[in-house]
Design a protein around this nucleic acid. Structure first.
Lengths: 108, 108
DNA sequence: CGTGTAAGGAATTCTGACACG
DNA sequence: CGTGTAAGGAATTCTGACACG
């Protein structure tokens, strides 16, 4: 019953053209931030980059910081920190759900 | 404060290749269902179709019905009915939000 | 350091048609 | 009716490089 609509946020489905429209950034910028390891799009078998809505949010965040004069490597460590924290939260959450499911015999 | 993450569901951002992967349908089928007016993707200025996650859900629904032997024109009227109902709900909702915002002087 | 651009190639998407039925 | 396919063209994306700084 817990359909996770929120998973749409993290699904990598957009090509760079749409991301460019959504963020207002140039393809050059989007690819450059990837090279600097600020985001990690998926790739299709043939090498086409695929982004999620959360990547788009992330890019807008990055763009703001760049404008403020923050350098990519600084943004990178901040984002890495945040990602780590989020990963921990996700695991904690996953375990909690497992517990609940085991208890109430639900499917997931 | 009410960030609508759920708006991601209706944002038309995917090209047909991804939709094909997500639904398991052929491009031919996806385009055909559009011709039969079962769904309404956007188009870029250059004519490329763009789909939303809700279009993907809709396609899977359509595919199920086709398998059951339901014909496209029947599916069409059912979907049209559902769309109408949803539209009414959306408007009602929008008005309610307007009321609330006016009352509490919130930004939206 | 961060970004623009021209270059050439590869992958994607589009439409209308022939086919089967 | 619903779907597959080959055909030709247009639009998209990719990489590595030159440029400025």
């Amino acid at each position: 019953m817990t359909t996770n609509e929120s998973s749409y946020r993290d699904k990598k489905v957009m090509s760079i053209g749409i991301v460019k429209e959504l963020t207002g950034l140039s393809e050059r910028q989007i690819r450059y931030y990837e090279k600097r390891q600020l985001l990690f799009p998926d790739r299709t078998d043939t090498g086409i980059r695929k982004y999620s809505f959360s990547d788009v949010e992330r890019l807008m965040d990055i763009a703001d910081q760049i404008e403020e004069g923050v350098q990519t490597h600084e943004i990178r460590s901040e984002l890495a920190k945040r990602d780590e924290l989020q990963k921990t939260k996700d695991i904690r959450n996953k375990m909690l759900k497992g517990q609940l499911n085991a208890h109430f015999q639900k499917k997931y």
